[in-house]
């Protein structure tokens, strides 16, 4: 019996208008992702890969089509439902880390827990656990400026893990790192995938894409399986 899909996109289209030119970021995309998959989305810049990730992550809504995640249709969800979805089910990892410069590593990881309404003790304990998992047990009270690029990305991964998401979406997670640090981060992310988290990585780095179990390439809004 085939495993049921975690994420199911049906005929999803999304257009952007820049000036008087219409850009088809996604054109009639249908796609199914199973739990625990490790997916790399590749394609040239402006091809629509970020749009796809944003729609799966509940940051953006399609113009048409449906996006079902664990049976709920994100295309029809309101701001509140999408916020809860992003908080509980998704962990975002950004190229530029997007850490709060005035907060310590621990406080940065606690943020999603604060937003989830967790109590003081619980959020601290969980944030410590997450920082421990990414190997930063000794850097908890450091601010981002006191950390290296690789360590900052580890903090942002720990933050993505805080609410035990089922999906992690990483947009060029190694883009701001040298290759050695980039490999370390990929090993960390791959390890999380092995623990059962569905991992979606947007990248144009073929070395990164190679590690994925499935590669989707986008060209002018159209999705193809496998490397382009």
């Amino acid at each position: 019996m085939p495993q049921p899909a975690l994420i199911e996109l049906k005929s999803v289209s999304k257009d952007y208008t820049i000036g008087d030119e219409t850009l088809h970021a996604l054109a009639n995309v249908s796609l199914s992702i199973k739990p625990g998959e490790f997916i790399a989305i590749t394609g040239p810049s402006g091809s629509g890969k970020s749009t796809l990730a944003n729609i799966i992550g509940g940051l953006d809504k399609p113009d048409s089509g449906s996006v079902e995640v664990e049976g709920a249709d994100l295309a029809k969800a309101g701001d509140r439902q999408l916020s809860v979805y992003r908080n509980k089910h998704i962990g975002f990892v950004f190229q530029a880390f997007n850490l709060q410069p005035t907060y310590t590593a621990l406080e940065n990881v606690m943020l999603p827990l604060v937003l989830a309404g967790a109590g003081g003790k619980e959020r601290k304990a969980r944030a410590q656990e997450c920082l421990n998992d990414v190997g930063l047990a000794d850097r908890m009270s450091h601010r981002p400026t006191q950390l290296s690029g690789g360590q900052r990305q580890r903090v942002s991964i720990a933050r993505a893990l805080a609410n035990k998401p089922s999906i992690i979406i990483a947009d060029e997670p190694t883009g701001n790192l040298d290759s050695a640090k980039g490999r370390e981060i990929m090993t960390l992310l791959a390890g999380l995938n092995k623990q059962g988290i569905t991992l979606i990585i947007i990248t144009h780095d073929m070395e990164v894409a190679k590690q994925a179990s499935r590669v989707l390439s986008i060209h002018d809004g159209a999705v193809k399986e496998g490397r382009s």
């Binding site: 916020s83 709060q100 943020l111 999603p112």
Partner: peptide, 14 residues
């Protein structure tokens, strides 16, 4: 920061 808060699940109302 507002974008980040939203991505982490803070709704418009909050």
């Amino acid at each position: 920061e507002i974008g980040l808060m939203k991505a982490m699940g803070m709704g418009g109302g909050r």
